[in-house]
Design a protein around this nucleic acid. Sequence first.
RNA 1: GGAGAGAUGGCCGAGCGGUCGAAGGCGCACGCUUGGAAAGCGUGUAUACGUCACAAGCGUAUCGAGGGUUCGAAUCCCUCUCUCUCCGCCA
Length: 428
Amino acid sequence: MLDPARLRTQAAEVAASLLRRGCRIDLDEFARLDGEVRQIREEAERLRAQRNRTARAIGEKLAAADKAGAEQLKREAATGGERLEILSESLRNAQDKLHEFMLGLPNLPDEEVPDGTGEDDNVQIATCGKPRQFDFPVLDHVVLGERLGLDFAAAAGMAHARFALLAGDLARLHRALARFMIELHVREHGYTEYWVPYLVNPGALTNSGQLPKFADQLFCTERDSLYLIPTAEVALVNVFADQLLDPKRLPLRMVAHTPSFRREAGAAGLDTKGMIRQHQFDKVELVQITEPAESPAALASITAHAERVLELLELPYRRVELCAGDLGEASARTFDLEVWLPSQQRYREISSCSNCRDYQARRLATRVRRSGRQANELVHTLNGSGLAVGRTLVALLENHQQEDASIAIPQALRPFLGDDAVIGRPHK
RNA sequence: GGAGAGAUGGCCGAGCGGUCGAAGGCGCACGCUUGGAAAGCGUGUAUACGUCACAAGCGUAUCGAGGGUUCGAAUCCCUCUCUCUCCGCCA
């Protein structure tokens, strides 16, 4: 959510900023809704102040044993209640409308964010690692995976399209990857591990920015009105909802390994083959909660933490900065990490690291306590995938395949895989 | 799912129709004390919104949430949510 005060005082700047990401705000509508709220509230507060004064006076009369005076005041106070009731009702309505309007607005892009309207305008910042030259025909992860225990038919049979099932060494590899990532972030990057609910209520999703706009992308349990998390970010960021934090506790670094569930509505025809785009995928998610001034540095750190995973797994990748038009709803600035896929001869997203500044914090009401007469402040929140486990599995299979279709395991991962150096060697 | 108990400020905990935004303690901040620290002593310390200069002051709201009774509700009534205990079921 944007700062309503800023929208009042710097309307033109806000509108221009939103326009960069392709969002046209109706400033007149805002002014109308906001003005209505303020006008009604002013009158309601005046009436309430009057009522409170009278009630206090009655109390004083009674304390002074002035029964007659108290009765007199009571008679006066009896009128005017209906007007206040009407005002309260319309105030509630006006506030709801304003709130709904505000919930529809995305975050403002940071000034450094490049212009652009979509994916094609994103800016490559760096490439890291060289795509390997193969001296044999490369196989894609579906062919490689099926040899090892990847089974889409079984998954579709028991669930639906866009679900996968892993067996044997592939399931072991998947588990090893997740453990490797989370241990790295906990032991070397200073994150605290969380284990969180995979079903959350609408309030949690509104706080993190998924609702009300993106309900279509979420799986919902009809009977209980709970939603499956589309990312652990939702759960992690809500841990500190409604809290006033001691600045000494910041920055908070949190990591969780969870499944993520996405309906992928509107993605018909995209990545229909393979494990790239699934309804359910595991992800190791990083979240940082920081002092406002620290969030730019934190974005750099969270991105570096995700990159470290790719480096240790010896996977070639590049870092891309999203243009204003491609930013996620809550993000002010985002770096995507894209891993090289030999079968596709291109880089594919494997991590997205975002600084949401105070956009989520405002909905969450997560603040830092300031001493003296300084006003308390909203924290900044950041999130990044460190990494998407399924896509990492895909990248690992393809990049580390050998001529006999077995998979070489990078050194750093071996301790998590019973020290195996290769998996899927053909049987003699 | 059944029965009972509870939900108060950053935390603990009193209050059970009026001057209660709320005693007391802890914590925290500042000061005194000290060679320095601890202890001790003193002072201060809820949040959000409005007005306004993001000051002071003033006003409004907030004692789990929503409704009700009343001139007036943390306190009384109703509904809901959550937590705990016991029973049932169960990975």
